Amino acid sequence: MSDEALLGPLEAARIREGIAAAVIGAPDGLAAALERDADGYLRLVDASRVGAEEASRLLREAVQGARAAGHSWETVGRVLGVSRQAAQQRFAGTPAPGTPTGGEPGSPERRILSPVTAFNEMAALEEAGRDGWHLVGYGPLFLEVETSEHPWEHCRVTLSSGGRHRRMEAEGWIPVGAGWFPWRYYKRALGPVGKR
């Protein structure tokens, strides 16, 4: 355990149990197959691989989120139980999902809002949305927005809010990307934008 562990032993145990339960419980019939079928263990290896890849992705995004919230590499390293240099070498060059791409000729104009943090990005999106810009991509310290003919509203909710996600989509909210741990971003068009 690192010198800077912020979770108690019970919290850490619940996370470990939850991951194990997801790995064993998500593939249909895997738990039962382990009792009678040697191939079930190969499915368990594959499910564990997927779980490890997802845990690694969540850790990368959590580190980028901590950096975007203003925490130093020194602090991040302490929480991870490694040096500042080790944390920076492992996580600084990690490409982010939703990294901006160049637009096609004739496509709507795009802008990068940067630097933004977990604490000011929603205010930046609110201001951009009023002027007809909507979120199309994001990553550590940036938001990518695209112009349109309508004002937009944006919101973010935690990824664990499964029922809420379905309700929001039923209310016309559009998910943007796959989420940036721990957030999922949504947008919704409003009425036409006034003359610019």
Score class of each variant (00 low, 15 high):
Ile15Asp: 10
Leu125Tyr: 09
Val63Trp: 03
His134Trp: 08
Ala118Asp: 14
Ser2Ala: 14
Arg16Glu: 11
Asp37Val: 07
Pro95Ala: 12
Leu42Gln: 03
Tyr185Lys: 02
Thr158Asp: 12
Ser107Glu: 07
Ser48Lys: 01
Arg36Leu: 05
Ala87Cys: 10
Pro27Ala: 07
Ala68Thr: 15
His165Phe: 07
Leu7Asp: 08
Glu169Trp: 03
Ala69Asn: 12
Glu171Phe: 05
Gln64Tyr: 00
Phe142Ile: 08
Arg111Val: 13
Leu113Asn: 04
Gly137His: 00
Gly40Thr: 09
Ala124Met: 10
Gly137Asp: 00
Gly163Ala: 11
Val136Asn: 02
Ala189Gly: 05
Glu169Thr: 15
Leu10Asp: 15
Val136Trp: 01
Leu135Gly: 00
Val50Cys: 04
Ala170Cys: 04
Leu125Ile: 10
Asp131Cys: 02
Ala33Gln: 11
Pro115Thr: 08
Tyr138Thr: 00
Glu171Val: 07
Ala86Ser: 12
Lys195Asp: 09
Leu58Asp: 12
Tyr41Met: 11
Trp133Gly: 02
Leu125Lys: 06
Ala13Pro: 02
Arg57Lys: 14
Ala170Val: 05
Ala170Lys: 13
Ile174Asn: 01
Trp173Met: 06
Ala55Trp: 06
Ile15Trp: 03
Leu125Thr: 04
Ala69Gln: 10
Tyr138Trp: 07
Gly51Val: 04
Gly40Cys: 10
Thr94Glu: 13
Met168Gln: 10
Gly139Pro: 03
Val116Trp: 01
Ala21Glu: 15
Gly177Leu: 12
Glu171Ser: 13
Arg90Ala: 14
Val82Cys: 10
Thr94Lys: 10
Ala92Phe: 07
Ala55Cys: 12
Leu10Trp: 11
Asp39Ile: 04
Leu59Ser: 04
Ile15Asn: 04
Ile15Gly: 09
Gly177Trp: 14
Gly103Arg: 12
Gly137Gln: 00
Gly8Phe: 05
Tyr186Val: 08
Gly179Asp: 06
Pro151Gly: 07
Gly8Arg: 04
Tyr186Glu: 05
Phe181Asp: 10
Arg164Glu: 12
Trp152Phe: 08
Gly106Leu: 07
Arg36Ala: 11
Arg57Asn: 09
Ala92Ser: 15
Val50Gln: 12
Arg130Leu: 01
Arg78Gln: 11
Pro140Gln: 13
Gly18Pro: 11
His165Thr: 08
Leu42Lys: 04
Gly77Lys: 01
Ile174Ala: 02
Ala68Tyr: 06
Gly102Pro: 08
Ile24Gly: 02
Glu53Asp: 14
Ser56Arg: 15
Asp3Val: 13
Ala47Pro: 01
Gly194Arg: 13
Leu30Glu: 07
Val79Gly: 03
Val82Glu: 06
Glu127Tyr: 09
Glu53Ser: 09
Gly139Ile: 03
Lys195Tyr: 03
Ala22Glu: 12
Ala189Pro: 13
Arg130Val: 00
Ala68Glu: 13
Glu153Cys: 04
Gly81Glu: 05
Ala86Val: 11
Ala178Gln: 15
Arg166Gly: 04
Tyr186Lys: 06
Glu17Lys: 15
Gly194Ala: 15
Leu141His: 08
Ala178Val: 14
Gly25Trp: 05
Ala189Trp: 00
Pro140Met: 11
Gly129Thr: 02
Asp46Arg: 10
Arg188Gly: 03
Gln85Thr: 09
Leu30Arg: 08
Pro182Lys: 07
Val136Gln: 03
Pro9Arg: 13
Arg16Gly: 11
Ala124Pro: 01
Glu127Ile: 14
Val82Pro: 00
Arg166Ala: 13
Tyr185Gln: 01
Ala31Pro: 01
Ser161Gln: 15
